[in-house]
Design a protein around this nucleic acid. Sequence first.
DNA 1: CACTATAGAGACATCGGACGTTTGTCGCGG
DNA 2: CCGCGACAAACGTCCGATGTCTCTATAGTG
Lengths: 250, 250
Amino acid sequence: MALTDDAIAKIRSMIQSGELPPGARLPPEPQLAAQMGLSRSGVREAVKVLESARVLDVRRGDGTYVTSLAPRLLLEGLGLAVELLRDDTLLEVMEVRRMLEPVATGLAALRMTDAQLDELAQILEDMRAAADDAEKLIQFDTAFHHTVIATTGNETLTSLLDGLSSRTLRARVWRGLIEGNAAHKTIDEHHAIYLALRSRDQLLAQASALIHVNTSEAWLRTVLAANAAKAQRRAHPGAPAGRIDGTDSP
Amino acid sequence: MALTDDAIAKIRSMIQSGELPPGARLPPEPQLAAQMGLSRSGVREAVKVLESARVLDVRRGDGTYVTSLAPRLLLEGLGLAVELLRDDTLLEVMEVRRMLEPVATGLAALRMTDAQLDELAQILEDMRAAADDAEKLIQFDTAFHHTVIATTGNETLTSLLDGLSSRTLRARVWRGLIEGNAAHKTIDEHHAIYLALRSRDQLLAQASALIHVNTSEAWLRTVLAANAAKAQRRAHPGAPAGRIDGTDSP
DNA sequence: CACTATAGAGACATCGGACGTTTGTCGCGG
DNA sequence: CCGCGACAAACGTCCGATGTCTCTATAGTG
């Protein structure tokens, strides 16, 4: 297959070269098709791919435009990718968070304003009030970390970490936390991060963020282990645990 | 638009739920179309999107299959996204690298084998030999950092950092380095990282990686500034330099 | 003159069918 | 047992038609 992929590459290249700057309007599909030497069907597939990557914005009845190309748009797909990762690679994601989130939180301690601190305090309060509602806990947890990282002013960093902490990943961790009666302890960890940020203590913020990510990772491990054991029983009832990596001998 | 996007969501959801595990074969397009209540054209757009995201593997004359869903595949798109970022957000990318790459390099110092160290030494030698060929320098530079990070054994981390250091970003930095006669100094920085790794000194590796990223960032700044000034002159010949952030007063 | 309702044109959304090309397979023959 | 050729299945591409939404210009109204 070359035609459609060529079209994708051509449009991408026109954007990268500046020939199609953010906000620019593309020619109508039939004209674009003629220009690139393929049918309208092929152009539609190409445009659809770039639209799903948030590179193009297709407005029905109007036309197709280049988006702002802001990091928050282009990095949106990272979250979708993480959602599809296999269980055993989620620990790799956690290891990346473990490396990145503490440093980012430390940076946030240097840049955070009083208003942002108050916002965090409010989220913490909400979290404490919702201590028995898993759905809300996840929501406030997401808001807490997003708010912290966003204060670095680095939109790319924020989008990356948002993507690495996809919704289903967070949901799994919290499921473990709640079933393990560790929700309260985890909320305390958020409080510790908040206190470090309020005192603008970079190293303390970094340390408390690392401890928090570490706790999340530990609970994710337990959830994944329970999950793997369940899958194992489903596949071979009563049989001892064996290979779980999905490989197969020829 | 809902039909095609619904189809994308449905297929994604079937994969996420395990109904379509890695390697599974999807029904033929016409059947898939009937099953999801839309025409084959719509299904083809949906499949194309998921293929471009490396979620599906379409084999002409054979069928459509779910990929391995390995991080290296799913995170491949990150590089394409970074390639399209605007100049002013590339500094954000550099800030992320500045936070992540030193920690990762430090981790590599703990896990690297002798064979991998020898591989690095070879790349360093190649780099020195190619000191006047920008193209090769970029190639060896990419190989060096990829090899270092890959020794952490974390494929997700490796793919992320590969994506953050997209080819055009590296090319710009090296253009600055060469024009500024700093190529030699930068190769020395690679050597310093290598020495730290060889002595398995985590903190030293971390420090030398930070210094190296910092140098890259500095040269990227000069390249971007020169670029912005040129764009400014192109827009207003002879006019004094003014705002270069692209904002506009009403 | 200012504002609103409306008709038209333009553009994307979706469909259905047709044909070419590639690939995997299965049976035949050496 | 192995190689070869024909068949069938599946994706790649194209074309044309129709539906639906948006923007805009125009005519009408107060």
